[in-house]
Write a protein that binds this DNA or RNA. Structure first.
Lengths: 232, 232
DNA sequence: GATGATTTGTACGTATGTATA
DNA sequence: ATATACATACGTACAAATCAT
């Protein structure tokens, strides 16, 4: 649906021939994946060496990441990967849940038969993934499932925003599905959402979706609480 | 609640001593106000001269504006103020309405007596503005009114996102209240929202808010349709 | 279609402000 | 407290690509 980097300034569909874009995409992934952990200082010269470029494109990439909130620029004191407090993470999860709930409500009223068919098809196929406990496969399916719903809002702006927030939470959702029965429960929740959509019950679908997202969030809530230090 | 520029990379609360930040803030306002109309090319050297700076901070500012979507960077072919189609504008308005509706629902359940008191106080004071047809004054009040509601969600992330989208629509909402009775109608709608909040009816407040926002949007919908060309 | 002018993209140098001894 | 070290912020220079003729 969109490039990995989330917001892409060189919008449209051209290749990211710009060095700063490439660097930004790589850094985005590395921050989202946790390879660059929160609080880590990002030295311009160091990154420049790493990418075989000069500091200029690195700087531009960092500036853009700062707008997204992935890094924090402390004027003349360097750039660090944004420290996200547990409180803020939970705020982001709540926002994400509400956005998804909003999307599915609107999608319920606007979804086309083709889109609905695609959702059902994907959902059916996901059963095999659950039985195999194919976590990576289910994760991929799950992402697509939600993205199809974004698309079914038939509001491209809304879909972009939803995806951006989702991507921003990627780093914290990493361990989400690793916990036992969460996979099967997730699929059950999807099914309930699909049923509500099929019956045209937007509000019901919305409630189900919110619960679904909050379940996923709380599944890792305690995990985050143990991982993240209050004041660093 | 936040600086005019919307997303501020130099987050926290320091003064924007960075040249690129100052330039970005100015350009943000000029784009939002329409002084720099959609489609206008932005020459780096020209801007540098205008701000009495070099191209470097100008470039950094433009890169950041691109992330927000205010300008579009076409690699090696320059930067233009983003062309926004009427369809996309309406999409943005819909998203904005839904976000506001979401915020007020959550705010209804979490608002403190102090915050509620402040809303009522502001609302009462706004009557005088309506009677005077003080459009600028009402516009200012209106912005604060909505921002207090954002704050009452007690979810800072959500509040930021809501404000960012609101700011992004500023340019198109400019003429919103210039149309006759819209001022009085707006205030009536606020009152209905306040009543729902007072009774703790989140869903009702949410519906009222959505209608309120869509009224405002449709009030200028035709205006936009006449102003914006389909394919430019 | 080729050539020159203009503008962007990248590299690099220097000054300024911050952190540390 | 002063000085030293260091990374950033900005300016300038050059290279490459686009566009205008």
């Amino acid at each position: 649906m969109e490039r990995a980097g989330g917001n892409d300034p060189s919008a449209g569909g051209e290749e990211p021939e710009l060095l700063s874009d490439q660097i930004r995409n790589v850094l985005t992934d590395e921050i989202a994946s946790g390879a660059l952990p929160p609080g880590m200082g990002l030295d311009e010269q160091e990154l420049a060496n790493r990418f075989g470029a000069s500091r200029t494109p690195v700087r531009e990439a960092l500036r853009q990441l700062a707008v997204t909130g992935l890094v924090e620029i402390r004027p003349r004191r360097g750039v660090i990967v944004t420290q996200t407090t547990p409180e803020r993470i939970m705020e982001m999860f709540e926002m994400s849940a509400e956005i998804e709930a909003m999307c599915v409500r609107i999608a319920t009223y606007r979804i086309t038969p083709i889109e609905r068919g695609r959702l059902i098809e994907m959902h059916d196929a996901s059963e095999a993934l659950v039985q195999r406990s194919d976590i990576d496969g289910y994760d991929k399916f799950n992402r697509e499932f939600h993205e199809v719903i974004y698309g079914a809002t038939h509001n491209a702006f809304m879909a972009e925003q939803a995806l951006t927030i989702r991507n921003r939470l990627k780093a914290f959702r990493r361990t989400q599905l690793r916990h036992g029965s969460r996979l099967a429960r997730s699929r059950e929740e999807h099914e309930a959402i699909l049923n509500a959509i099929a019956q045209g019950e937007g509000d019901e679908a919305s409630r189900r979706m919110r619960a679904h997202m909050l379940n996923a969030a709380s599944a890792i809530g305690r995990y985050i609480a143990t991982q993240t230090r209050k004041d660093v």
